[in-house]
């Protein structure tokens, strides 16, 4: 398919991008790696009138040690995450989950910020962010603010980012040596998850966080599993609650019953692997 006509603005800086967003409001869309937006435009499911290309903002591509956390520039590609020694040591779930996104060509262009800002419940990286207890930095005309992962995803393909805000940084608390697991279930290596489960046993008293992929309109933390674990439940008993509070979609890959079952199986596997 072929996208509808659209104006194109290349942002020279984060501030210029924010200014363009402020000017065009809802009509504008940020273009980073383009791997979520461009397909929607080609099917004419998204018809922005202005594309603000932030793909060349090299200063938003970095992976730095932030002390108690790892700071990742929003335009860092999945490939950079996947191969980062810093992440592999201190936030290994992020590096691993990045390696599970799409195929190599997708991972070389797709960006962490783009994936998180798109807010697709079937995407891998939002679950990793949630399970890690991370946060994102949003920059707008009035300055910066930090949004915790648990408050970022507000609805189907909707986030707490305002129309004139740009995500600049993603912060992942260090989980050096902590148990973790990502269980992605799909039919082909390159596909989105039919269901996925991410678990991080933070080891700092927070207990184990479990996030679910494609079990509702947004990427989500499983509070039922988390509460059960905090209350001393076994992995098996906690995992049995994995479908609670979810509203899984129905499509050619499976109905709600099957997805609920998968969530229980995958959470069990994730908890076992994370050593919870």
């Amino acid at each position: 398919m072929i996208p509808a006509p659209v104006d194109y603005v290349e942002a020279e800086s984060a501030d210029a991008a924010i200014a363009a967003l402020t000017q065009h409001g809802d009509e504008a869309k940020l273009l980073a790696g383009g791997h979520s937006l461009i397909p929607l435009m080609k099917f004419r499911l998204a018809t922005p009138t202005v594309l603000v290309d932030i793909g060349r903002l090299g200063d938003l591509s970095y992976i730095n040690d932030g002390g108690d956390h790892i700071a990742i520039g929003a335009l860092t590609t999945h490939r950079a995450l996947e191969t980062s020694a810093l992440l592999q040591a201190d936030a290994p779930i992020m590096a691993h989950v990045a390696s599970q996104v799409g195929d190599p060509s997708v991972r070389h262009r797709g960006t962490l910020g783009g994936s998180l800002a798109h807010g697709d419940p079937a995407s891998d990286l939002p679950a990793a962010l949630l399970a890690s207890g991370g946060s994102v930095v949003a920059k707008g005309p009035n300055g910066e603010r930090v949004i915790p992962a648990s408050e970022l995803f507000t609805g189907f393909l909707e986030t707490a980012l305002a129309a004139d805000e740009l995500m600049t940084e993603v912060r992942i608390p260090k989980a050096t040596g902590a148990g973790w697991s990502y269980q992605k279930f799909n039919r082909r290596a390159q596909d989105w998850a039919i269901v996925g489960a991410a678990a991080v046993a933070s080891g700092n008293g927070d207990g184990t966080r479990v996030a679910l992929v494609n079990m509702g309109p947004t990427p989500m933390l499983s509070s039922a599993v988390g509460s059960a674990l905090s209350g001393g439940a076994s992995a098996a008993d906690a995992a049995a609650l994995a479908a609670e509070g979810t509203s899984p979609p129905e499509d050619l890959n499976g109905d709600a019953e099957y997805r609920s079952h998968l969530a229980r199986v995958l959470v069990k596997r994730a908890l076992d692997e994370a050593g919870s």
Binding site: F43, D103, R188, A189, Q190, D191, D251, L252
Partner: peptide, 24 residues
């Protein structure tokens, strides 16, 4: 190729029409 009751193809794109790759 899956169809609904009205004769619409539900998976005309490679997103849902699963052609395997070498990885499979």
């Amino acid at each position: 190729a899956s169809y609904d009751a009205d004769g619409n193809c539900k998976n005309p794109s490679f997103l849902d029409y699963l052609v395997p790759s070498a990885a499979e």
